[in-house]
Simulated assay, not measured.
Amino acid sequence: MLNEELLAILACPQCKGPVRLTAQQDGLICDQCRLLYEIRDEIPIMLIDEAKPLDNED
């Protein structure tokens, strides 16, 4: 699980907007860009090239 302080300062690398934790706590979602940034081994992968487009609302 991500530290609340870290989550508060993370931003989408594409639009610089806020991100939110998924319900399963396995990724971060940017609602503005509709992208999912995975969390692997408790590390958020905040790379635009590795982000996955969202098909459905999480």
Rank of each mutant, 00 (worst) to 15 (best):
G17V: 01
G17R: 13
G17N: 14
G17F: 05
G17M: 03
P18R: 12
V19Y: 05
V19C: 07
L21D: 01
L21R: 09
L21M: 11
L21F: 04
L21A: 03
T22R: 11
A23P: 00
A23Y: 05
Q24F: 00
Q25I: 00
Q25S: 13
D26S: 10
D26E: 14
D26W: 03
D26I: 00
G27C: 08
G27K: 09
G27T: 04
L28K: 04
I29Q: 07
I29K: 10
C30V: 02
C30M: 03
D31W: 10
D31Y: 08
D31F: 09
Q32K: 15
C33R: 11
R34I: 02
R34V: 01
L35H: 03
L35K: 07
L36E: 06
L36W: 01
Y37N: 02
Y37P: 00
E38Y: 11
E38F: 08
E38I: 08
R40T: 04
R40G: 02
R40K: 14
R40V: 10
D41N: 11
D41S: 10
D41R: 13
E42K: 12
E42H: 12
E42Y: 04
I43K: 11
P44G: 13
P44Q: 12
P44H: 06
P44E: 07
I45L: 15
I45K: 14
I45D: 01
I45M: 13
M46H: 11
M46A: 13
M46D: 04
M46S: 05
M46W: 11
M46G: 05
M46I: 04
M46K: 11
L47K: 10
L47I: 10
I48D: 00
I48G: 00
D49H: 15
D49K: 15
D49C: 14
D49R: 15
D49M: 12
D49G: 15
D49N: 13
D49W: 11
D49Q: 15
E50Y: 15
E50M: 14
E50A: 12
E50L: 15
